[in-house]
Computed example of a mutant assay.
Amino acid sequence: MHVQMKQPPITRIKAQVTTFRRFSGYRPFLYNVTVDFCGFMKNPKRFPFFFMVHEAIRKFSNFNHSCPYNHDISINRMVLTDEMISRIPVPSGYYKLLIRMASEGIWRGEVEAYLEVNVGYDR
């Protein structure tokens, strides 16, 4: 994923992460969290679910610092491992992860990721 900044620097970012589970279609499930991303980057452990998602993305991205962002954002060659999935307390099943981003108070984009969690047993 590559996000090109049209008017840097970006100083105010809001991020929302929502999880869905497939039950005759994808239904909201367990998490719907919105945070001030700049504040999160200054103290990431304040938001445990966001911290888990960010830890999975961090090694593959270039947004590992606090605001302002004066450069394009990229996530490159990301692969989810069993270790990353096992940290999230969910039962086996099919999930959708929706990540929405806003800058300067305007929703700019969203990313959907579809996952199958199969831990071999039901938690």
Rank of each mutant, 00 (worst) to 15 (best):
M101T: 08
L98N: 09
W107M: 10
Y114Q: 05
P48Y: 13
S92G: 07
I75Y: 05
R58Y: 14
E112H: 15
K59D: 06
N118L: 10
T11L: 09
S24D: 11
L98P: 01
K42M: 08
M1V: 12
R22F: 13
R100N: 04
A56Q: 04
Y121H: 15
P91F: 09
L30M: 14
R87E: 11
G120I: 06
T19D: 07
N32I: 12
R22D: 09
V119K: 15
I99V: 14
M78Q: 02
V33L: 10
Q7I: 08
E116T: 12
R58I: 01
V90W: 00
E83G: 03
T34Y: 12
F37S: 00
A56H: 05
G109N: 00
C67L: 09
S24P: 05
N70V: 03
E112T: 15
E55T: 12
E110I: 13
Y114E: 07
N70H: 14
E110A: 14
V111N: 07
K14N: 03
Y69D: 01
C67H: 02
Y26S: 10
R21P: 02
S61F: 14
S61C: 15
A15T: 07
K14T: 04
S61M: 13
D36N: 14
T18D: 00
C67S: 06
M78G: 07
K14D: 01
H54D: 01
E83W: 07
Y121I: 15
F50D: 01
H71N: 06
P8Y: 04
G93Y: 02
R46K: 14
P48H: 13
P9S: 09
S103H: 03
K45S: 07
T11D: 12
S92P: 05
M78S: 02
L97N: 06
D72H: 08
D36H: 08
Y69R: 06
Q4R: 15
S24A: 10
T11A: 09
F51M: 07
K14V: 03
S92W: 09
I88T: 00
Y94C: 05
V79E: 12
L115C: 03
L30V: 15
R87V: 09
G93S: 02
Q16T: 12
L98G: 07
Q4E: 14
M5S: 06
K6E: 06
R123Q: 08
N70Q: 13
G93W: 02
R21W: 10
E112M: 15
M41E: 06
H71D: 06
F50S: 09
N62Y: 10
P91Q: 07
G109E: 00
P8M: 04
E112K: 14
I73A: 04
N118C: 10
G25H: 12
